[in-house]
């Protein structure tokens, strides 16, 4: 906070400085809250990841998971789950987004957008239970299929598996994709397609040379958002699996809350690993965003 005020006041006359000082006071509450509840805990977390929880001595032991294939299982599971739900969400969401745009019906667009906002905000415990009621062992759809001779669970399906979680995660990944891809899809000018057409291009040539290159940037950027979103999700996974499927967020929660597995140092280290993945996704997204706003002026 002190550095912030110092910076803004540099080189101003004394009278203005006192006014600036008073104005800076308005920034104080935010600075305090951010420091206390974001910066300090983050520093504590990073510090903790490099120190033994018991002795307090500097140690890299918490990061030993990086070298042990067995300890990387949660990362592998999380990676798989995030990748699957990102691909499903990304492709289906793109398809729905284009269907909404192609419908050219304001009413459909309105309903679909509002519903997407609602669905993208469904997550956590309620969503998990909605799916247990649908696809759980005695879920509505499970029973319906069973009475028609298809037994999902005999076929090896489990809701609390990576496949099951993918289906559930898709419930918010798809609408999220719809919401983030709608603006670029709507920004695609009809005259681009017509210009390509009149120049002799087939539909496929237009897609390959114009539409796909233009949409690629926002598409990948959206996938990164979906990926980060799936990777960091905890509530849904926990409610569905009660901790049975080994995912990074679930391992972290076991390490800070479990009786047997309590090890805050390792939790810190896992959290740092997770944060790195998040940072890569979000950072990549920020870079891509800048490029796509240049092409699709929105």
């Amino acid at each position: 906070m002190r550095s912030l005020t110092a910076r803004t006041d540099a080189g101003t006359p004394a009278a203005a400085r006192s006014r600036g000082g008073r104005a800076a006071l308005a920034l104080l509450p935010l600075a305090v809250l951010i420091t206390a509840f974001l910066l300090v805990p983050t520093v504590a977390l990073v510090w903790g990841s490099f120190h033994d929880s018991k002795t307090g001595a500097f140690s890299l032991a918490n990061y030993s998971y990086l070298g042990h294939p067995l300890d990387l299982i949660p990362f592998r599971n999380s990676l798989e789950l995030s990748l699957a739900s990102t691909l499903v969400g990304g492709l289906v969401g793109l398809l729905i987004g284009q269907a909404i745009v192609s419908s050219r019906q304001p009413l459909i667009q309105e309903i679909a957008t509002t519903f997407s906002s609602v669905a993208a905000n469904f997550a956590g415990v309620p969503l998990a239970y909605a799916f247990i009621a649908t696809l759980g062992n005695s879920g509505l759809l499970t029973l319906f299929l069973r009475s028609n001779g298809i037994d999902l669970y005999d076929g090896g399906f489990k809701l609390y598996s990576v496949l099951g979680l993918t289906i559930v995660y898709a419930y918010w990944e798809i609408p999220l994709m719809v919401l983030v891809m709608l603006p670029p899809l709507q920004a695609m000018k009809r005259s681009w397609r017509e210009a390509a057409e009149i120049l002799g291009a087939s539909r496929w040539q237009y897609l390959r040379s114009v539409a796909i290159p233009i949409l690629m940037t926002p598409f990948i950027s959206s996938l990164l958002l979906l990926y980060a979103n799936a990777f960091g999700a905890y509530a849904t996974a926990y409610a569905l699996t009660t901790g049975f499927v080994s995912l990074v967020p679930i391992e972290i929660s076991n390490l800070i809350n479990g009786d047997v597995s309590y090890d805050p140092g390792q939790a810190d280290a896992l959290a740092v690993g997770l944060a790195v993945i998040m940072a890569v996704c979000i950072g990549g997204r920020a870079i891509l965003e800048r490029r796509s706003t240049r092409w699709l002026d929105r």
């Binding site: 005259s191 681009w192 017509e194 002799g200």
Partner: peptide, 21 residues
């Protein structure tokens, strides 16, 4: 005939230049 078979040239009101090229 569809537009891509007519061999006409057209300049659109907003130019419709391909932004990626």
């Amino acid at each position: 005939l569809p537009p891509n078979k007519r061999g006409m040239g057209m300049v659109f009101q907003g130019y419709a230049l391909f932004p990626n090229m």
